[in-house]
Amino acid sequence: MTVLDKELNLTVSSSPHIRFLEDTKSIMLDVIIALLPALAVATYMFGIRALILTAVTCAACVFFEWGYRKLLKKTNDIGDLSAVVTGILLACCLPVSTPLWIAVTGAFFSIIIVKQLFGGIGKNFMNPALAGRAFLFSWPVVMSTWVSPLSYDSFFTLNMADAVTTATPMGSLHVASLPENLTLMQSFFGQVGGSMGEISAFALIVGGLYLLARRVITPIIPLSFLLSVAVVTYVFPRGNDNLQWMLWNLLSGGLMLGAIFMATDYSTSPVTIKGQIIFGVGCGLLTVFIRYFGAYPESVSYSILIMNACVWLIDKVSFPKRFGEKSGGIKKAKEADAK
């Protein structure tokens, strides 16, 4: 026994004994990276204030998560970066002119009430960022004050005097008319008023493609969501040109951010493919329904939140078929062989 005489301290634990590289932290980091294009556009359109707002919501989210778990003597989770993701997403759905203290209040609601009170990561049933935003509609004026893009005097100061209720594409669509003085291209690239992270469909799609390439998300929820919105708006264009109406609907408001980043949130979406299709289509139909008949122009957040609340039910009805059950296995296979 030459090589084996030293004491071995072998670990005995259950198989499997190897694991894939990807972990929660790397996934969250990918989501953060995927949100960078949208943040860059927001900063370009609205100035440095967009970054300040994001930094504040992130810091607040991380702080609340840390503080809550510390206070209750639970394991420290901030290393998984999920609070940072919530912070960025929350900032993305706020108008750039939102007072910082209101943003911090939103972060509190997102992290403490929606996420931690239900047990923390993976256990919350509503999307924290969206629920935080919904909560902030307690300040309706703040939440619908839109700064026009590229209107800043200096990159470093936000001209709050300009922060008036600028018309947004969503505002026009809500009253069944196509936006005036705006082109689809402007909307696609984000030169419109709106929540700071929602304005550029282009930036969000780039981020989405990154997430797909990294396999952080699958295309099922975004596609079924977007497609159902596309189909319904195309078929019922509310008196407008079908194609124009459909494209404006796809590119406006929170749809891209919602379909790519919010509806795909793991904790609050179904786990089976069948369930994800039901979920995506449900989000899409509700979005159009609320846009057409609701009191507020904002519809994507509410649609997703409503579908979030149905996930347990969807998961229940979308049980996968048991392996080998009633397959008629041999008969069918034999017939196939015979051919």
Binding site: D77, D80, I121, S269, V271, T272, P320, F323
Partner: peptide, 22 residues
């Protein structure tokens, strides 16, 4: 092994997508 002190499910659904027994 890549074990962590405090394993937590994030409901990502990856386990569902890879289970060969459905």
């Amino acid at each position: 092994e890549k074990s962590v002190k405090d394993p937590k499910c994030i409901r990502c659904g990856r386990c569902v997508n890879v289970c060969p027994m459905h």
